[in-house]
Amino acid sequence: MTTGRNAQRLPGASNQHVLKGIALLKSQRLAVLPIDSYDLDSELSVVDRHEYGGEYDALTFGAWTCHVLANGSGAESDIAFRPHSGRLTLTELGTQLPGIMSLVTEHFSLDRLQWVRIFSLRDGIMAPHVDFLEFSEPGTRLQIPLRTSEESLHSENDIVYHLRRGEVWKIHTTDPHSACSSASTARLSLCLDFSDAEEPVAIRNDVPATEPIRIIERPEATPAELEELIGSGRKLTPATMRSSFRQFATLHFERNAHAAMVFDWYEEAARRTGDVGMVAKAQAFRRYCIEKRTDGEAFDW
């Protein structure tokens, strides 16, 4: 397997800062797959047209959707992740995507594989969150972008980075992390969930990495920018709390700030309303996203 350990020097960026970002990044690029050897365009168009049931709407803003190719039940409406001990079963959508499933079976063992999904993100963003809070043991989550662009980014704690097409990334899911894309064409990322967070996932037939890991340097937020964001809380209403959260999450990708700071800003903005109910809602959303969540719990905006 191949692992990139060098940083790309970005225009105007401090190379020392970028190298520090790589050193602190807990997510890992495990390999690069020969994705150009697969003709996936027609299958990606199938995903673009596929309907989504809205299971994760509380955490997503803009056009984020989830599409299930294989799980424990074989039902493509069975979207919400949970560990299972059953056999991996193709959904109806999975049977329509033989090329993508070949990419999975030719490079990964199915022994521990529990879920095969594709995440679509277009002009949207996810709230910073921690995965697997509902479960006693986390699994291993890999993401492989099938279609992406420079406008599509991931974050982990205070680091923002880019996943290139065909790169296999082990996402560190138990620290606050997020994803965003300002592109008008949907970013499509293959998500593979394996049981056991400690056991390495074997990857076959990968190719050498030719590009360094890309860390995105962001400037510090100015006091004026933070005051403008937090001061917008004076206009918040119960009806606009959900839609307004997006601007707080967006600033994390544009300015050097920890993902958890998004909730600090949001709660302080809610305090500017003078409405204790709205403050409680902001605090509850923080708990749901990054602190404590029960199996099957849904957040009601």
Rank of each mutant, 00 (worst) to 15 (best):
R218E: 04
P200T: 02
K235R: 08
F253Y: 12
A270V: 12
T240N: 14
R234M: 04
P212R: 01
F263D: 01
A249Y: 01
I159H: 10
S232P: 07
G233P: 05
R246L: 09
S243T: 14
L163T: 01
L229N: 10
A221I: 14
D206K: 03
K235W: 01
D264C: 04
L229P: 07
T222R: 14
H258I: 02
A257V: 11
T250I: 05
A197Y: 07
E228G: 03
R214S: 10
S181F: 01
E220N: 13
F263M: 11
I215V: 14
I159S: 13
I171A: 00
E225V: 11
T210Q: 12
E227A: 09
R164I: 01
I159A: 10
P219S: 12
I159P: 00
R164T: 02
A209N: 10
R204L: 08
G233A: 02
N205E: 14
R242W: 11
R165S: 05
P208D: 09
I203Y: 01
R272P: 07
K235T: 10
S155G: 05
D196L: 06
T210M: 10
K170T: 03
W265L: 11
T237W: 09
G233V: 02
M241F: 15
T237G: 10
I230L: 07
M241H: 09
G231N: 04
R165G: 03
G166I: 00
E220M: 10
H258F: 14
D264S: 15
E198D: 09
E217W: 03
P200K: 03
G231R: 05
N205D: 15
R255W: 05
